[in-house]
Design a protein around this nucleic acid. Structure first.
Lengths: 206, 206
DNA sequence: ATTAGAATACTCTATTCCGAGTATTTGGTA
DNA sequence: TACCAAATACTCGGAATAGAGTATTCTAAT
């Protein structure tokens, strides 16, 4: 798959807002905030304006008019072009249908965790378990505060996804911590010795 | 938590290589490739060199010597400073212990999927299911090719994590697709009507 | 009547990031 | 022995990003 012309998901959110009706960038930002989309699509104003500029350059959106109220800064109102509409839906289809590899911080940590002693890794994972547990609890509480009639499942599906991922992670990390502690993970002794030897060697060199 | 001075995980990988012994950047890159770390930490040469520069500016690594073999380009060999060693381990601890929110492409897609008709979403999710199934199968096959004695669990833990996440996603997406198809997800009719109405309105406007 | 603070609506700049490109050398093969 | 692909070791420039900063206006309390 050839790389997208523009890849920041914020641009997709912009297109999707303009599909509803023409807006100026700040209004787009507010709309996304009110719908809590900024929890699944990173929104900051610097990016918003540069993304809008890119979309205009690509001809996916066009500025319809600029207006001003009182002496407030001018606002440029954009609308979706036909081209933009096509791209919006194709992009959305691609995101839903095609899994892509993404790099996470935790994955990076895991891939280098062999540099820390097993006991310490276990303790760090225990801390993660606590934090994850709390985070999940909070998410569920927040979720429960808004009834289904107010906000149907369709509009919190990204939340459901995120919760599910965190729960899966929690279960896995718990197992891993236990396996390290119990020695169920083979080679923990070698690991410990290796760390000790390495540390000694480094200290010797100084 | 105050934002890190340098946040690209590639920098962490660099530090961790230099903890073993002094190297030049290209060698760091090769080391990471040979250990398949580029599957969990995005590696490209542009970033590698700029990250090394940043680390030197921060004083976490220092250039020890520059040498050349034959008429090949010069290579600068870097070593970890004491400060760098401290930062390496603190960073690693943080990554393991503290969960951070990360934005994924799929999440973005989910949060805007209401713009597509339910039938189409279902079909797209089915496609995702197929691709995920295949990806998981491939990962497992690749994994099975190297025996545990050759590469202990400790060194493929990031793989195990990734596989687990994909499997969790697969199960969840399958349920979601089924719920949309069966009408188990409440409000699918409203959703369908809403899309049709919106489309009609847009066409009317043109 | 005044003023603090939130909201409005961006703009600017400093990094960071990434892909493509470059120039040499080595190794294998025809 | 001539040649080509792969490996070596980067460099460069442009695009993307993030966060802080700016200037105005509205609101609500003192």
């Amino acid at each position: 798959m050839p790389k997208r012309k523009i890849s920041n998901p914020l641009a997709l959110a912009v297109l999707s807002c303009l599909y509803e009706r023409p807006m100026h960038p700040y209004e787009i930002g507010m709309t996304l905030r009110h719908r809590s989309k900024q929890e699944s699509i990173k929104l900051n104003y610097g990016s918003l304006y540069s993304v809008v500029e890119s979309l205009e350059r690509l001809g996916w959106i066009a500025s319809r008019e600029t207006e001003r109220e009182g002496r407030r800064p001018e606002r440029t109102i954009y609308e979706l072009t036909e081209r933009g509409e096509v791209e919006l839906f194709n992009w959305l289809r691609e995101l839903l249908a095609i899994p892509v590899k993404e790099y996470t911080q935790f994955e990076a940590g895991l891939s280098l965790m062999a540099g820390l002693a097993p006991e310490e890794v276990e303790q760090l994972l225990r801390q993660r378990i606590e934090l994850l547990t709390e985070e999940i609890k909070n998410m569920k509480e927040l979720d429960a505060m808004v009834p289904e009639e107010k906000l149907p499942r369709l509009f919190r599906i990204e939340n459901e996804y995120w919760q599910m991922l965190r729960e899966a992670e929690l279960a896995w990390v718990t197992r891993l911590a236990d396996d390290i502690a119990s020695g169920e993970m083979a080679g923990v002794d070698l690991w410990r010795e290796f760390i000790a030897a390495h540390k000694a060697q480094r200290e010797g060199n100084q």
